[in-house]
Computed example of a mutant assay.
Amino acid sequence: MRRDVIVTCAVTGAGETTEKSPHVPVTPQQIADACIEAARAGAAVAHAHVRDPETGAPSRNPDLFQEVAERVRASDTDVVLNLTSGMGGDLIVDDDDPSVPGEGSDLANATERLRHIERLTPEICTLDCGTLNFGDGNAVVVQTPNILRAMARRVKELGVKPEMEVFDTGHLWFANAMVNEGLIADPPLYQLCMGIPYGAPGDPGSMMNMVRMLPEGAQWAGFGIGRNQMPMVAQAVLLGGHVRVGLEDNLYLEKGVLATNGQLVEKAVKIIELLGARAVSPDEARDMLNLRKNA
């Protein structure tokens, strides 16, 4: 069991959640405020996507990321900022003509996917470590080994810590390969993403199996989506990991009660403390992950 736990809050994702809850932040100011709220509730790390302020659709516009980062850094809350770099791999396969990307596809090379990371050099950015059939429709998240290795090399050059997001055991296999190839600085940081259709199931056995595949000395966190969010908090702590909560993964505090990011962090911290552990500060998280703090 882990005694000192890093809590990450994923404040807004790329999913179609803005119409399901009024608490999902959309504008850069709302997203920055959500990061600050999460930090004040006990999160050491805030993980952020950005959205088109007018439509709420997911975006990879570097100007939007910059506004979020500047607002968070200008606040009196010293939170570790973790920006997504997972955008640019969205493929919608057309049933009638699979050779042509369907409406809603967004495909970009490694350089384009890292434009905002190059500009802002956050302490952490995500690195989704494999391709995945995303749900029951025609959506595929495309992350090829060539693209991922190129991104890993550039992120290492920038001094940014990649959080390697693994959605299934094959992703973890490839993440381990990048560690063995020297593309990832020590200590490697993994995020076990549980319950996303059709990746690893969100259950204790699946998380335990993935933990057994991690290299010695790795830092890792885990999360579950929907109703499995809080059970996976407990499971990750018991297995020696850190945790992630937030509105990217779950909209509810309890059945029928919509949550805020701060409330989800508070609930996670309570679970951690009831297990005899504690949530660490941002500076403690920096030491544990060997992060380069931004000025």
Rank of each mutant, 00 (worst) to 15 (best):
V7M: 06
V11Y: 02
T12Q: 04
A14Q: 13
P22K: 01
H23I: 03
V26A: 03
T27K: 04
Q29V: 10
A32S: 14
G42A: 05
A44R: 02
A46V: 13
A57D: 13
P62A: 07
D63N: 14
Q66G: 09
V68D: 06
V68C: 06
A69G: 03
R71T: 15
A74T: 10
L81E: 08
T84S: 13
G89I: 10
L91Q: 08
I92S: 06
I92Q: 10
D95F: 12
D97M: 06
D97F: 07
G102K: 06
G104W: 08
S105G: 08
S105A: 10
N109K: 02
T111D: 00
T111A: 00
E118H: 00
C125I: 10
L127C: 12
G130S: 15
F134E: 05
V142W: 09
Q143V: 06
I147L: 13
R149D: 04
A150P: 00
R154Q: 12
V155T: 00
L158E: 12
K161E: 05
E163Y: 08
V166S: 01
T169I: 09
A175F: 09
A177T: 09
M178N: 03
E181N: 01
G182I: 10
C193P: 00
M194F: 10
A200F: 09
A200M: 11
G202V: 06
D203A: 09
M208N: 12
N209P: 00
M210Q: 12
V211G: 12
E216C: 10
W220F: 15
G224H: 13
R227Y: 12
Q229V: 09
P231Q: 13
M232C: 09
M232W: 12
Q235M: 11
A236C: 14
G240Y: 05
G241N: 04
G246E: 06
Y252Q: 13
L258V: 11
N261W: 10
L264V: 07
I272W: 02
E273L: 04
A285D: 06
D287F: 00
M288K: 06
M288E: 13
L289E: 09
L289G: 04
N294F: 07
